[in-house]
Design a protein around this nucleic acid. Structure first.
Lengths: 300, 300
DNA sequence: TATCTACCATGAATATTATGAATTATACTA
DNA sequence: TAGTATAATTCATAATATTCATGGTAGATA
């Protein structure tokens, strides 16, 4: 079994994407090259590495064993590479950083300016989307900032800071719908990230069962900025992280509907694969991110 | 830094031998190939991996970092390779087993017949020498059985069994030298593995200080079998593990000089690099070896 | 069922990379 | 200073990886 890093890389990419064509794209070679590489590797391993389960590509038992080894091997080599550079006074490497759309576009890019300046050798790429877990798991992203609670094998989670939420609406809307108490929202159009209304969970959870409104009219909007704008237009009440609407509160274009209500808070976490947690550039970025305080966010 | 396993292997071999020519021999390629490989690797790492300290080759800082990574990487890959084979019902791989000369040649080879039969896929190579630690550390040996106490970074030690020693001499010799008590050995020719007489340490340590003989006449012989044969020829008194001379005692060609004396015992240990301890073939062999009881050795 | 479409496998040609033989360079030794 | 052991070079060649062009297959679509 004369192993070979190129073949292992090809195998690893296929294993992560479960798609030869996509793996080839990721490696900047042709699909044929990947196919050849994996075939040769399988031959020298003496066993097929991929099989087909219901039309889909899937790792065989041997494939799974090799995949684990590849993870360890590549992370180990990456670590060594970085250390060698670091020992010579250079920090290097790329961090593919993921975050939710609103947080990323409005705050993260601004706040990270300092980190990027401090670490000129480290390149940071951004991906702002709602789906963050899968890209993290198959190495499309290295580091992810999310307020959702993920659990997965080999994933490391670091708490960052707390965000609190606010119920928002325009002045006119409130007047028109006569909103006084939480129950009143039952008869209002409600803006939510999801049709089921789970998005409002933190709000509902903060209320005694008797006072919980039952939403009749939910409008789905898959971006927080869209919810904010819709609320300003008087299309409904929204529920968003407070840091997103500080300006609007100040400009009085939006109202914090229940300012006295103590809402359950969500925690922002940084997620990364355990194997990557040892990377210096990851540790540096994490250290930087940990200094983010909600206050600073509000100032930003 | 486009790494490559061949280059890493070349580098690793050079790092272990600190000699390009020797590394080449080990990899079954020419010195030129190794030189090329390491040079290319160094270029892509952006730093020299070896430097010369007083004419001797030595790892640079970057080299040391890479060496650590290589260790992890190669052991990881080897483990994967073995697991893949094992998952398909085959046990494979080679174990380079080291032991002291006398123990290895007389007992180990016999006793391991069972293991070799049970594990047809696993190949065992033997190296019986006195110097076992260094070959173990630079991977010339995978597993070493030794009664000496070694301590080194990243080395794992498993106790096997105890051996006890005996002072031996021929009947004629004892008569001629009138040996009755330990002190009498001071005026006898003494057979030892080392000129300094440290070999007899366990014997001397078993005696109260007052009864300790001071050897005047030490003959160095670097094989236990040689000591035994010399003792039989009447060239001196020897000090050897009891299991080596059971036959001679029975045939009355040698005498157990102080049978009543409770000699300090030495423990036999199996040593292996920590990284290799996870290998299945290692675990199997260790399990087999642990079943060795002194009694069985005597029967063998 | 015929026809797409999105995949992956294969074979031959080509580009790239590793290796070996021979030689030169270097450093230590006597 | 020559002698020895070792590493670096150079250049030709062998081995390997990659591409290009093509064929095959399974699932989806009409």
């Amino acid at each position: 079994m004369a192993l070979n890093l190129n073949q292992l890389k090809a195998f690893f990419a296929v294993a992560q994407t479960l798609n030869y064509t996509e793996a080839a794209r990721r490696l900047y070679v042709t699909q044929s090259a990947v196919s050849h590489a994996v075939a040769t590797l399988a031959k020298s391993a003496g066993d097929d590495l991929f099989g087909k389960a219901g039309g889909r590509l899937a790792l065989t038992g041997s494939g799974k064993i090799l995949y684990k080894a590849c993870e360890a091997v590549f992370y180990e080599l990456e670590r060594a590479e970085e250390q060698i550079a670091a020992a010579r006074g250079r920090n290097t490497g790329t961090i593919k950083l993921g975050a939710t759309v609103e947080f990323g576009t409005t705050l993260l890019v601004k706040y990270l300016k300092g980190f990027i300046k401090k670490n000129p050798g480290v390149h940071v790429d951004f991906q702002f989307r709602h789906e963050l877990l899968r890209p993290l798991l198959n190495d499309e992203l290295d580091l992810v900032i999310d307020c959702r609670n993920h659990k997965a094998e080999g994933l490391e989670k670091t708490p960052l800071f707390r965000e609190d939420y606010a119920v928002i609406a325009s002045r006119e809307f409130l007047r028109a719908h006569k909103v006084r108490r939480p129950q009143d929202l039952g008869r209002c159009p409600v803006l939510s990230m999801d049709k089921a209304g789970a998005w409002w969970g933190n709000f509902l959870g903060a209320l005694p069962a008797a006072e919980r409104p039952e939403f009749k009219n939910i409008t789905e909007l898959n971006h927080i900025r869209a919810i904010i704008n819709a609320a300003m237009e008087g299309l409904g009440v929204g529920f968003v992280p407070r840091y997103c609407v500080l300006k609007e509160f100040k400009a009085r274009t939006l109202v914090n509907v229940f300012p006295q209500l103590k809402l359950l808070e969500d925690n922002f976490y940084v997620y990364q694969k355990t194997g990557k947690a040892g990377l210096e550039r990851h540790r540096n970025l994490l250290g930087y991110l940990k200094n983010i305080k909600t206050a600073q966010l509000e100032r930003a």
